[in-house]
Every structure is written in C-alpha cells, then in structure tokens.
Amino acid sequence: MNLDLRLPLYQRLRDMLAAAVAEGQWRPGDAIPSEADLSKRHGVAIGTVRKAVDQLVAEGVLDRQQGRGTFVKRTRFNASMFRFFRFQSETGERRIPVSRILRREAMPAPSAVASALRIRPREGVIHLVRLRLIDDLPLLAEDIWLPRARFEPLLAVDPGEFGDLLYPLYEERCEQVVVSAEETLTVETADTMKARLLRLQPHAPLIVIERLAYDLARQPLEWRRSRGAADKFRYHVEIR
C-alpha cells in the first residue's frame, strides 16, 4: 500500500494494520500479534504500536480483551434490530429471525441505489428481497442492494444456502467484510406488496430502518431498507 509519509508514524502504522485487516490477513475473530511482536516487526517503539492499536480500537476495528489479547472485531449488526423490533417467540424468548430470500436479481443500478453505493449510474448491482420470520410469522421485509463487482460470487450461491445472517456470507464467499454502518429510521405506510409480505392491512404504518454498511476504507458495501409493522416497533436508549 502507498503510505503518506507526511502522516505521524503511529498513523502510518495504523493504516498498515488496517490494510492487513482489509486484505484478509487477519479475519474477524482472529488475534493480532502482540504489541511487542508488532514493535519488532515494524521497527517502532511499543508506544507507537499502542497508539496505533488504540486508534483502531476506538474506530471499532479491533477489540481488546483483558488477559487474552487484541482481536479483529466481529461486528454484530443483528443486535440493532433487537433495539428496534421485538424479535421474540410466544414465550418471550429472544431469537434471531429465520431469513428467506424471495428474489435475487442482477440489474443496472437505479439512480438512488447508485448514489447510496457511490457507483456509476446503471452500474451492475445485485438486488435481494428478503423476508425475516419467527415461527413462520413475517416480521421484516427487506430490500438489499450490493455492488455486483464486489459480490459476483453470490449469484452462484443457491438462495436456500444464504443462511439467516448475511454478513458472514459476504465474508466467506466474497471476502467483503462489513466493519461499520449508519442507520436512519423513518415511517411510511405499507403498499400492496409490503402489506401482503408482512400480512398487514394495506396502508398499515411501517417503520423503515435504512442501513448503509461500509468496509474498512469507508466504501459502501451494502444498502438495505428493512420494513416492519409499527406495532412491533420499540425504541430503547439509556441516557446518563
């Protein structure tokens, strides 16, 4: 990689470590070398290594675990859905919804999708329509958009093999790792198709969670809109 020599040494080391994660040298869940090992490998002081690692921990790329070491953080974006919707069985047990891919298509990017993913208008994208259910009851209807150039292998995967969580699939089949995301909540009413998918009355109120997910270089990897019935929506925040 090309390093900007004008940057402080710890910042350049931070960029080198981030590149190692982005290139898959260390995968989510892997332990990185100790600070002493990194100091010896890169010929810098341990204080410089610690400052670079501190920055990656603050950015959510690495995770320090007391007594165990420092690991590449495995993000748990599914937890955000638990913040907003009641994903529970009839007995009150919290569960990850079952996912069902209803449609997968390769197509030119609509203008709004191209803008969100920062790709050229009409550039190739993959569009997924996914339904998430608990006990066969639909909770979320999702439209998911991916840059085709980065996710081409997904077109060869049987939709029945996608599993309930997509980000591990992105990593395993496409070597694309989501490390951060931005979410926006809005409200709309259900059109005919969404009402049918979610088994609601037409024009029922929906909560929409719009998520833009990024790789380590802050390039958009995925744009999705998840829609669920407003009466299953919850919002919780602790303020201190």
Rank of each mutant, 00 (worst) to 15 (best):
S115F: 07
S111Y: 08
R50D: 04
E93V: 10
D63F: 02
A190T: 03
G24N: 02
G47A: 12
G228E: 00
P121I: 08
R103W: 04
L212D: 05
G124V: 03
P205K: 03
G43P: 05
G124M: 10
W145P: 00
M16G: 02
I119K: 05
A156I: 02
R148D: 10
I144P: 01
L221N: 06
L198Y: 05
L7V: 05
V187I: 13
L197K: 00
V187P: 00
R240M: 09
L165Y: 04
N2V: 14
L137G: 01
M193K: 11
V157K: 04
R104S: 08
R225I: 06
K194I: 13
G43E: 08
D54G: 09
R76M: 10
R224T: 13
F151C: 10
R196K: 14
L200K: 05
E210D: 12
V208H: 04
A45M: 07
R27P: 01
L128W: 04
L198G: 02
L62H: 01
R120I: 11
M16W: 02
R6A: 14
L197E: 08
V49E: 07
A112E: 15
Q25A: 12
T189V: 13
A190P: 04
V57C: 10
R234E: 12
D158K: 07
Y167C: 01
R95E: 08
Q55N: 06
L3H: 06
E152G: 01
R104E: 07
M107L: 15
R104I: 13
A19N: 02
G228V: 02
Q25K: 10
T91W: 04
A230M: 09
S39R: 08
A116V: 12
L5S: 13
R64T: 05
F87A: 06
L197M: 13
E172S: 14
A217N: 11
V179D: 03
A195G: 11
R12A: 02
E210W: 00
A19D: 09
R240K: 14
